[in-house]
Design a protein around this nucleic acid. Structure first.
Lengths: 144, 144
DNA sequence: ATTTTTACTTGCAAAACAAAAGTAATAAAT
DNA sequence: ATTTATTACTTTTGTTTTGCAAGTAAAAAT
C-alpha cells in the first residue's frame, strides 16, 4: 500500500487515492445518501460493479478512510462507515458540487438542484458542519 | 461530448470530467506551477505520457476549462491557459491539498510542506483569491 | 428444510492507460 | 541556405483497469 504514490506533491498524492471515477462517488453515497452496506451500494441506480465496489471498499479500509464492522445480532451484513479521515473529504465534495452546479450545466442540463445544494450555496462552512454532524448522528458515530 | 454523464448527481457529474488520475494534476500544474505549453507538461518530473496529455488537453478545451492560443511571433508553440471554468476548480484543489496534508502523511511521509501550504492553512479563503489573482497576473489573463 | 439475501469472487471482453517510437511543422543555429 | 533541434503531437504496441455476467458460500428468513 505504501509508496504507490507518484511523487511528493500533496495534490497528486490525494489523487493517487481518490483520483478515479468511483472512489469519491462511493464516499458521497455514504456521506449524503446514507449508504452503508454492500447491498446499499449495489442496489443504487448509480450502481458500481460489485468487483470494483469490493476493491474500493478494501482500499478505503486500508487507508482507514472507512471502517467495517458488524451489528451485534447479524453476522452477515457488513456496515461500512466513514472515519474522520473519510469525513475529512466533505469540503472537497462540497466544492466539487459547487463547481459542478456553476460550470457544467451547459453540457449537462439535467443536473439536480436540491435543497442541500441550496443550503451549500447559502452557507458553505455551516453546511459542511451540518453534513458531517448529520452523518455522525445518523450512524451513531464513534470511530477515529 | 454531451451525455457521457452517468447520472444527474452534480458530484458524480464533476467526476465524469475530472475523476481520473491526471486531469486535476494537469490543472494543478497550470494553476500552481505556471505550466502552459505541451513541453512544460512533458518535461515535468511528474510527467504525464504525451498521448494522455494530448487527449486531456483536448477534453479540457472541449469543456472550455482551458483555452489554446498562440503568441504573435511563434506559430508553433501552443499556449494553454485556464479559463474561469478551469480556475473555478481552485477551491477543490485547495481542499484536496488540505486533506492530503492532514490525512495521508501516515502513508506517505515525504509529502511536501511549503509556504503555499502554510498560507492555505492560515487563511483558506484569502489564499484561494491570491492563487487565482496570481495566475491571472502571471498569464495576462483575459478569457471567459 | 428450503429459499432468499448478502457479500463477495471469478472469468472474460472491452476500454483506458502508458511507454516508446515516429512524424511533421516550425524555429534556431551554422 | 542548409542542417539541426524543438515542439506538439500521433501511432504502435503492450499492459492494466473496468465492467458485465455468472457463480459461490455463509447467514438469515420462511
Amino acid at each position: 500500500m505504501n509508496n504507490n504514490f507518484r511523487c511528493n506533491c500533496p495534490i497528486t498524492s490525494a489523487l493517487d487515492i481518490v483520483g478515479d471515477k468511483w472512489t469519491l462517488v462511493i464516499i458521497k453515497q455514504m456521506l449524503l445518501e446514507g449508504k452503508k452496506t454492500f447491498k446499499d451500494f449495489s442496489a443504487s441506480d448509480e450502481a458500481v460493479a460489485s468487483n470494483i465496489l469490493s476493491s474500493r471498499l478494501k482500499m478505503l479500509e486500508e487507508f482507514k478512510m472507512i471502517s467495517k464492522e458488524k451489528l451485534p445480532h447479524n453476522k452477515k451484513t457488513n456496515i461500512y462507515l466513514l472515519t474522520e479521515k473519510g469525513l475529512g473529504l466533505t469540503p472537497t465534495i462540497v466544492e466539487l458540487t459547487l463547481w459542478s452546479d456553476g460550470n457544467i450545466r451547459e453540457y449537462h442540463s439535467s443536473i439536480i438542484s436540491d435543497s442541500r445544494l441550496e443550503m451549500v450555496k447559502n452557507n458553505k462552512e455551516k453546511s459542511i458542519k451540518i453534513i458531517v454532524e448529520s452523518y455522525k448522528q445518523n450512524t451513531g458515530y464513534n470511530k477515529t
